[in-house]
């Protein structure tokens, strides 16, 4: 049974790019631990011979013709951005 530490919760939040407070760290630690314990019931099932299902339909490599078409304009796309400049998305500095 996996024990989920505070450090583990912080590591997960880091991977998920979500800033969490100490309070949230405690809460998610509890919730993740409870879920992990709950999910352990799956170990009751022997699945060594079972293939995993990632998609329920038996479809593979769905292809269509690659035909260029006007979909939307650069300006339309940029209108939804929090910040833009000279036809680009603008973000805060990457390097200090």
């Amino acid at each position: 049974m996996a024990e989920i530490t505070k450090e583990e919760v912080k590591r997960i939040a880091d991977l998920a790019r979500i800033g969490i407070t100490d309070e949230e760290t405690d809460m998610f630690q509890q919730h993740l631990q409870a879920f992990s314990d709950f999910a352990n019931q799956l170990d009751e099932l022997d699945t060594t011979e079972v293939e995993p299902t990632s998609y329920v339909l038996d479809m593979k490599n769905v292809l269509r013709k690659d035909e260029p078409a006007q979909w939307t304009t650069q300006q339309e796309v940029l209108e939804n951005a929090p910040d833009q400049q000279d036809g680009h998305f603008r973000v805060p500095s990457i390097l200090e």
Binding site: R17, A81, D83, S93, I94
Partner: peptide, 21 residues
Amino acid sequence: VRYGERSKQAKNMIDMYFMSR
């Protein structure tokens, strides 16, 4: 970056991800 809210507090790009989310 492309749509949705962006945190007003973020000073660099990594912070922007963490704080916006």
